[in-house]
Design a protein around this nucleic acid. Structure first.
Length: 866
DNA sequence: CTCTCCCTT
């Protein structure tokens, strides 16, 4: 308190001196100018770190955008340029420390470096879409401008590509090359077996060198889809549902909506499985049509709606369209519905397909449906939509040689590293992409590679090792986009993120060990799992394709051709078959779909999953005993949360703590790592994390404390850094909280604050009573319903508690090496009687405190006996 | 005494 007051006084003092200074000036205009300068100085000082953050985000954004368009050298160079700017700017910030920005400029006689214009309004901290997209689209404009030069690097590059693409299935080298013996004594033998054919007949484009607008139109005409325009439009006229099969680079996502608008089909919506894709494709199309983004062409994603009454082409995430069904069940505003990337089979896409099929029947000739997919699953989609015709458009890709291991490898991680070095020693220039299963494995591989390359520096070129996975802080993610220096070779160790979400420039070689981590769900126990499984053939093809984005490439599969053909599944099991569907079931119920067992799913989920969801919704009071949606259920469906959390929010009113519960729900929603734990600073990170749970109350209260502390720091990045908290994740939690706060009005919950941790935990328990468990004599826990043994996850704040709580509620049950409860808090059994008398009998909730319960020591002994 | 594959409302 006192500290705060002093700070405020200090601020006022400063202001006073400044005002005195200003008062000394006679000319009013000078005053204004001076004010402007002062405020600018103030502004610069205050916002420098945040601006750096923005630049970094922008880099990240652009990197994510890259995968949507064909990569050009311009794009890469611009990105590299930005990264260099960012590097210099951060370096400079470090160097000058507290010195005034203006001073340095004077000393050197040069204007100090200024960051690009911020596109975030510093008052509201909201992004200004127009500015933001001016920054984003500048890239395309630059590209067009530079093409007007006599012979650009772009042209040279493309000419080179045309030549190299001519040799389809370029020579396959014997990997057991003679250079290789110099480097190491072990190797992995490969057999060259097949070629993932390229299709690049359209790469040569004719150029007219005048108007940039014309250039854009020329570019559009060069896309493979263009030559099929007439037939495509005719097919759409003739058939209500059409499956468009086109590989990446065919231009289907950007062009088809434009053709439809040019042919006056009416309003078009096009769904994407990812947010960045929806945004960047919309930006691209707005540019091609020469309109302002958000007018005729717009996008709609969570937290951002860039559409208006004028919008005729709307790109959106699939989940967003699903939400639109709630307010407009027949989607009457759209004349054409395009579901893009349907082959990815995301949960939302699958549900959409069922709903859209129904709409198509209901609305008749009034609506057109287009499913856009890669080759896989296309026939299946056609069968689902009553044998809808397929329309095939060739893509644009370079050939990739595929090599299989001669015999299975026992230790694939080791085999990966050996193969990396084999490629490095024997293959021509080009970066390597290795697919691994998770962060742990990536870190192991980094160590392994570092060890193997130690002392080899003089014999081989430098090997730059970069990791990439989703929870890696964004500044470290940026490393994979840095151009490889001449003579060196980059190795990117990636998770599945590199399969679809991020495209890394310069990759020529792919190493595929054939595994990935995959989420699963056991409907009988409600346990989620995250286990390593073999990839499907479709996944393997997708991975191999990553080698052929820039030039002809090679893919090394660390499994035999026999296992590829006989042991691997054809397709990845769609998400709908391996997730908890409670939230989806609630959504469908609120859309008036009563008979879920017979809903038209393209792949019907296990009946147990649906029944479990229905039971849970009944227990929560969202459905009545006839399975009909209740008023409570309708309110819960409005909230973009898991029904258990939605229930907590609705119930929080009773405990006067809706603010606290909303905060906890927002923090729980950003499920992945709020807390950052680098290996070398693990002790410090753990200590910082422990500080949030000092007052007790379990992990949920710790999350609340964490958010509030960050809010009290005025959402500072520095604070995040000091407390090993990920800024990116916290910012997302803030967005979610803001959205929940708006929705409180709609679900008629009053905003109230109550810091009492008992009230907060009771409110949380009113949604999660379903997931309670009780300490056993063994020192382990046993769930009350569907009894089975579970363990507190070691990352939990209650893991090390001296006296283990007798009763716990968990947020999530995940099987990895054991059945772990992630995010737990302790409760009194009497609360369960108070909250869910319909669900528990008093017998189940007998307090056994009179009996002797084990402490931490006893638990360990128990483990030893077993 | 363990890590959290990837997405989305």
């Amino acid at each position: 308190m006192r500290d705060d007051a002093r700070k405020k006084d200090f601020g006022r003092e400063e202001e006073r001196t400044r005002n005195d200074e200003i008062a000394g000036l006679t000319d009013e205009r000078d005053t204004v100018d001076k004010l402007r300068v002062l405020s600018r100085q103030e502004y610069l000082k205050k916002r420098e770190t945040q601006k750096l953050e923005l630049l970094r985000d922008e880099i990240e954004m652009q990197q994510r955008l890259l995968h949507l368009q064909d990569l050009t050298l311009e794009e890469q160079r611009e990105l590299a340029h930005k990264q260099e700017l960012y590097r210099l700017a951060t370096q400079r910030a470090k160097l000058i420390g507290d010195r005034e920005l203006e001073d340095e400029g004077d000393e050197s006689g040069l204007a100090p470096y200024r960051l690009p214009e911020a596109y975030v309004d510093e008052r509201t901290n909201k992004s200004d879409k127009e500015k933001r997209f001016a920054v984003l689209t500048a890239r395309y404009k630059d590209q067009i401008a530079s093409k007007n030069n006599a012979k650009t690097e772009q042209q040279t590059w493309e000419e080179h590509q045309i030549l190299s693409a001519g040799r389809l299935g370029a020579e396959i080298r014997d990997i057991g090359d003679k250079h290789y013996d110099l480097v190491m004594n072990e190797s992995v033998d490969f057999l060259a077996q097949e070629i993932l054919a390229g299709s690049d007949q359209d790469i040569h484009l004719e150029r007219t060198e005048f108007d940039p607008r014309q250039q854009i139109q020329e570019q559009r005409k060069s896309l493979p889809v263009f030559r099929y325009r007439k037939e495509l439009i005719q097919a759409i006229r003739d058939h209500q549902v059409l499956i468009v099969v086109g590989e990446t680079g065919s231009g289907k996502t950007t062009q088809i909506p434009q053709y439809l608008v040019e042919e006056k089909f009416g309003r078009v919506c096009c769904t994407q499985p990812r947010r960045v894709a929806a945004m960047s494709v919309a930006a691209r199309v707005a540019d091609e049509m020469n309109v302002k983004l958000g007018d005729e062409v717009g996008y709609s994603i969570r937290f951002e709606d860039a559409t208006s009454a004028k919008t005729i082409i709307k790109y959106m995430t699939d989940g967003m369209l699903l939400r639109e069904f709630l307010s407009e069940p027949d989607l009457a505003q759209y004349s054409v519905i395009i579901i893009d990337e349907a082959h990815e089979r995301s949960l939302s896409t699958d549900i959409l397909m069922g709903l859209v099929k129904d709409i198509a029947r209901f609305r008749g000739d009034d609506v057109r449906v287009i499913l856009s997919s890669a080759t896989m699953n296309a026939e299946k989609f056609s069968a689902f939509f009553d044998d809808a015709p397929l329309f095939r458009i060739p893509g644009r890709r370079f050939p990739v040689d595929i090599l299989y291991a001669k015999s299975p490898e026992a230790d694939y991680l080791d085999a990966c590293c050996v193969t990396v070095l084999q490629i490095h020693a024997t293959q021509p220039q080009g970066d390597i992409l290795v697919f691994l299963t998770g962060q742990d494995e990536i870190e192991l591989a980094m160590e392994n590679l570092a060890q193997r390359t130690r002392g080899l520096g003089s014999q081989l070129g430098e090997l730059i090792i970069s990791p990439i996975y989703a929870t890696l802080p964004s500044d470290q993610q940026a490393k994979i986009f840095e151009p490889t220096p001449p003579g060196a070779r980059k190795v990117v160790l990636a998770t599945n993120i590199a399969e679809t979400s991020v495209t890394i420039p310069g990759i020529v070689y792919v190493i595929d060990p054939g595994f990935c981590k995959q989420k699963g769900f056991n409907p009988k126990t409600g346990v989620e799992s995250l286990v390593v499984v073999p990839v499907s053939r479709a996944g393997a093809i997708q991975r191999a394709g990553r080698a052929g984005r820039m030039q002809a490439g090679k893919c090394f599969r660390l499994y035999t051709k026999w296992s590829y053909l006989h042991e691997m599944e054809e397709n990845t099991v769609p998400e709908i078959l391996r997730t908890n569907l409670t939230q989806t079931v609630l959504l469908l119920k609120s859309l008036g779909i009563d008979d879920l067992i017979h809903f038209d799913f393209i792949d019907p989920p296990p009946t147990e999953t649906l029944i479990r969801s229905l039971e849970q919704l009944y227990a929560l009071g969202a459905l009545n005993d006839r399975g009909e949606l209740t008023k409570l259920g309708r309110r819960m469906a409005e909230l973009p949360l898991d029904p258990m959390m939605a229930k907590c929010i609705v119930q929080s009113e009773k405990y006067d703590c809706s603010e606290q519960i909303s905060t906890i729900c927002a923090m729980l929603s950003v499920n992945n790592s709020v807390f950052y734990r680098p290996k070398d600073k693990a002790v410090m990170a753990d200590a910082a994390r422990a500080a949030f749970s000092r007052g007790g109350g379990g992990d949920h209260i710790a999350l609340l404390n964490c958010y509030n502390a960050w809010r009290d720091s005025n959402f500072s990045t520095q604070w995040c850094y000091e407390n090993f908290v990920q800024f990116r994740v916290m910012r997302r939690a803030r967005d979610i909280l803001e959205q929940l706060d708006h929705l409180l009005d709609r679900v008629e919950v009053e905003r109230k604050s109550n810091p009492d941790i008992i009230a907060i935990r009771k409110a949380m328990a009113s949604g999660f009573f379903y997931q309670a468990c009780k300490l056993q004599k063994s020192g382990y826990y046993r769930t009350l319903k569907n009894p089975h043994t579970v363990h507190i996850h070691p990352s939990s704040s209650l893991y090390k508690s001296e006296r283990l709580p007798k009763w716990l509620i968990y947020h999530e049950l995940v099987f990895t090496t054991k059945e772990f409860m992630r995010q737990v808090f302790d409760i009194e059994p009497s609360w369960l009687m108070e909250i869910a008398p319909h669900y528990y009998t008093s017998k189940e909730l007998i307090d056994t405190s009179h009996r002797k319960m084990p402490k931490q020591l006893g638990r360990l002994e128990g483990a030893k006996v077993k």
